[in-house]
Structure formats: structure tokens, C-alpha cells
Amino acid sequence: MKQLLALLLVVNLAAALTVDEVLDRVRAVTNANDRQATATMTITDKGNRVQTRTLRTVMKGDDKLMMTFKSPADLRGVTFLTTSAENMWIYLPAQSRVRRISGSAVDQGFGGSDFSFREISNLSFADNSATQPAESIDLDGKPAWLLTVKDKDGASSRIWVEQARSLPLRVEKLGADGKAKKRIEFGDFVNRGESWIPVEITIHDLSRGSRTEMKLDSLKLNTGVKDNYFTESNMKKGA
């Protein structure tokens, strides 16, 4: 009887949470000041052609991200840097030059993958606001929240959040017709200190029929990466 009451209490509490409260919990458990990892990106196009790329990623907060290609050989040393949504640079070793990339069409995809630069850098779901109340559902046998949110550009997403640990399990980016265009699945969460980080992320581009899997190795959190790490000279050192 006590267990039943406890369960009812949990359910009642769960039902009472707003979307913002759920997202706050997600941010709280996935938060880290900085992250470093080696990412292996496996891109499978609609024709089942597979390409594998490895990158060194260094990230601070939601804005600062530097990614350096380690393989394949012809991309080794190519480095991307972003310090805000508007500021993106690329270093091409073959040209020995850093160039700022700008324009409205930027951030459609990253390195031929299904990830956009923003999707790689922003796991905290910042700038999202609720359009509907959080819905309590069952996802693969786990109690989960289903959140329907809009970002600042007005694009809608559905986010499934595991209730027990407040971890994001799945995100669907919706098109104007309300149908899912992209699906991102987070898996294999590892615990570092107070943070839970997914080391396997798979993104499916449902309209193109392609998918990209990203696996993180050598994950380090909160190592004290300085702001001045994200500079042009460090981009060139990536080579």
C-alpha cells in the first residue's frame, strides 16, 4: 500500500512539472563547463555508403567549440571553430589559411554528416520554449516526458526525456507540416561527477534517408579549458 501511495505521489509530482522545469532538470544533469573528447563519426548515406571520420572536439559552454579532423588523411588538420552562432571559422591546412564562414546557408550540415554545427554544440536545449504542457508517456518501457518545444527560429521539436534521470533520449525535429524531418537518439550515457553525457548519438535524416552515428571516446569533463583556447593560432596547431 505504501509503495502504491509512493508511486501515485511520483506520478502526481511528474504530472505537475512544466516543460521548462523538465528542461532545467535536463540541463542540470547534462551540464559541464567544458568537454573534450575524440569523436568517431560514421556517416551512412541513403545508398548505404559509409564514411568514417575522427575528430578531436573541445567545447566550452554552449557556444565555444573547436573540432579538428584527425582522419581521413586528406582532411587531417581541418579545424572548425565557433564562438557564437554568428562566428564560425575554418582552417584548411591545404591553403594554410583561416577564413570566417558567414551567410544564411551556413550550418546546414557538418562535414557531410546529418548533424548541423548547432546540433553538435547544443545539447542543453537552450533557446527552446514550450508550446504544449509536458506529457508523461512510456518510451521503450521507461517512463518519459514528451516535450513539444519551439526554438527561437520557430522550428518545432519533440523531446523525449527519461523521467528517472532526466536524460534526453530522443529528439525529433519537425517540419512545417508537423512531420519529423530528423530524429536524434542519445544512448550509452556515462556518468562523470554530477554529469551524464551520451557517448553515442545517432541522427537520422528522415527526408534524405541517411544517418550519422557519433561515438565519443576519451571523454573528459570540466578540465578547466580557458576561453583563450579558442583562437586562430590554436586552430592551426590542430594540424
Partner: peptide, 30 residues
């Protein structure tokens, strides 16, 4: 045309920023 294989590959990577659909009209992903 860029002179080296690496330069070509790196430009293609740069172009991926404008969406893989853009490049997919001209060359396969591999």
C-alpha cells in the same frame, strides 16, 4: 581547380556547410 587532392577534399568539406543536398547534386558522398 585546387591543385592538390587535400585541397579538393577540404573544399568539399567546407561546402558541406551549405548542406549536403547542395553537393549531392554534383557528387556522391563518397
Amino acid at each position: 581547380l585546387p591543385e592538390s587532392r587535400d585541397a579538393t577534399a577540404q573544399y568539399l568539406l567546407l561546402l558541406s556547410f551549405s548542406g549536403s543536398e547542395f553537393l549531392s547534386r554534383f557528387v556522391t558522398s563518397d
